[in-house]
Write a protein that binds this DNA or RNA. Sequence first.
DNA 1: GCCAACGTTGGC
DNA 2: GCCAACGTTGGC
Length: 153
Amino acid sequence: MKYWLVKAEPNCFSIDDLAKEKKQTTHWDGVRNYQARNFMRDEMNLGDKVIFYHSNAEPPGAAGVCEVAKEAYPDFTAFDPEDQHYDPKSKKDSPCWMMVDIKFVKKFSRLVPLDEIKSNKKLQKMRLVQPGNRLSVMPVEKDEFEEIVKMGR
DNA sequence: GCCAACGTTGGC
DNA sequence: GCCAACGTTGGC
């Protein structure tokens, strides 16, 4: 079992939106970064736990927990010229971009703001708080995951 | 809205 | 294969 963090802009798609989805599940489309794709494609397994992080928010921070509900498959939004995430590089017979499905598990009773994550000694090593890290899908250590869950209670 | 950091693109 | 230009991310 692995642990992850995914980012979304809540004015675009928040954890509440995820909770309102049919079956509380959505496909995590639109990732157009190779490193993030590789994590999803190669390492994310069914049932892995995922922190749902709100970026570009006031305040930014960890909003809750979800889990991988379907392992990597082609991101069909890349095939649609009308879609905002359309990418002509990705062909149906050789898809360039992949996505997973994620399912809502719980919303934290309080949002864990980024500055608390930054100032927590146990979380200093997280990629999230490394300068200039813009990955939208990143691995998290088990103890880091558990620490954030504890902070969100 | 600004801007630093960093990934991607494309000319050479 | 280098690297400048450009686009995107995301905190502030």
